[in-house]
Structures are given as structure tokens and as C-alpha cells.
Amino acid sequence: MSSKPGRVNPTVKAAIHQLVIIIFVVIWLIPIYAMVINGLKSNVAVYTTPVLIPPSSPTIEPFQAVWSSLSRPLLNSLILVLPVAFIATFLGSMAAYFFYMLSNSFSRVSSFVSNFLFSLISLATFIPYQATLIPLTKLIADMGLLNTYWGLAFAFFIFYMPTGALLMSIFITAIPPRIIEAARLDRGSDWRIFYKLVFPLSLPGFISTLIFNIIETWNNFFIPLMLTTTPNMRLIPVTVQSFTGGYATLYNETFAAAFIASMVPLGIFIFLGRYFIRGLIALGTGGKGV
């Protein structure tokens, strides 16, 4: 029972354990560290000092330099992403309630319909959306909505409303069916049951879905690349791309630009990360949490 020779001291073991994790964490942090310190380097310093060495005389020059070209795209992203993500998530939640009713009814037809719709919203969530490039651009162009907020919002809805419905379908299953059955027996209308019962009960799930949608919409690069051409309508991830000139021709402002583009999702991740994580986990486990 007493400690045997050859057994590693538990304190040493724990220290090695921590050390291994810390090594990986440090490696994982290198890019964000580089982004922050190099954003504060002057033009000359960026080209002459190693990327991993912090600036000897920090300056906010690069931020001032990129701000004029990034302020409008940042504003565009803010104006567009938050309402789009909210509407997509809310309308998606309403559909999730409908799917929930559908999958809890017993008819064979509705189970087929439910499987079909469920596959469809899953496809919309996971499809490489770039594959819809041509018809989507054509559709938006035909509606005369290229280079407009409406056109972008419409395109985002095609992918992120089903995502909202899929995630909320998963979160809604946590509500005991008996509660909703009781409400239906009390002759509640569907809208009332949703608004008074289902929505409040699945609010944490709704927030997770919303955060997930905000981050995904914000970081979407391809859709705004296709649907906007005028500089005034650019969204932030696409604008950041203009700071690379192709074939490793880099400008010193890339770091500042990347920082400005990342600040909103990163801020959300830092303060509301657990909701984002819960949203991701729901996609993979049907709502069982960490």
C-alpha cells in the first residue's frame, strides 16, 4: 500500500501534464499573438523584425492607416450581421417548433415530410455554399439586389435560417413533450404556445444559436465576395483580403486589418464563448452539454 519505488511522484506528474498542455496552448496562441504585436509595429519594423518579436516602440500607426478603408466595411458588417443573424435565428426557431410538432405526430406522411425537411435544413447548414455561386449570383442579380444590404441578407437567409432551425430543433427536444401537449389541450394557438412556452423555455438554446449564427455570418467570406462589387458595400472579411496583393506580397497593415476584422467575433467568443461552444456541441450530440 505504501508508495512503491518507481512510481512517479504525483506532483511531478501533474506538472508534466500541465506543461504538455501549456506547450500546445502556446503554439495555438502564436497566430493571435503575432496579430496583436505586429499590428503595433511601424512599417519598417514589420519588415525587419521577426514576426514573433514584439515591437521596440509600439505605434498605432497601422491602425490609423487601415481605419479609413475598414471603417465603412466594419459598419456594413455591424448593420447587416446582427439583424440578419437575429431574424434568421428567430424565424428558424419558429420552424423548429413546427418540425417538433411534426416529428411528434404519428402519421406516416408527416414522418416522411419531417425527414425530408430535416435533411434539407441539414444540407443548407453544411453544404459548401460556394457551390451555389452561379445560380445565387444570378438570382440576386435578377432581383436587382446586387450590392445591396437586402441582397446580402436574402442570400444569408438561405443558409443561416435553416442553420437556426436545425440547431433550435435540437435544443427544443430538451422540452418535455407533455408540457406542449398540455398546452395544446388547453387550446393554445401554435403562436401562443411558441411565444409563451417554447421560446422562453429554450432561451439558452436560442442565445447559443444566435451567437453561432452571428459568428458564422460575420466570418462568411464568399457570399459577400460574390454579391458585392462596389467598395461602399464591402463587408469586413472581404475587405481584409484586399490587404494581400497575391503571391506573398504583403503589406504591413495586414495585421491591423486582421485584428479589426477579428475583434467582434473574438470579443463575442471571449464573453459569450460558452454559448458558442454549446451551439457547436448541439450540432454534434443532439443537445447533451459539456
Partner: peptide
């Protein structure tokens, strides 16, 4: 630790790529 290892998921791939372009110098 979990947050520090998964934060890349929250940043735009476009921004990530720009930083890595420098790191690959």
C-alpha cells in the same frame, strides 16, 4: 485551456490566412 485551444473557430478564415501568410515567411 479549452477556450485557448478552440478560439481559432471564432475568427474569420480570411483573417487567419493573412496572419499565417506572415508566419510562413
Amino acid at each position: 485551456y479549452l477556450s485557448l485551444l478552440i478560439y481559432p473557430l471564432s475568427i474569420s478564415m480570411a483573417a487567419n490566412s493573412l496572419i499565417w501568410l506572415w508566419l510562413f515567411n
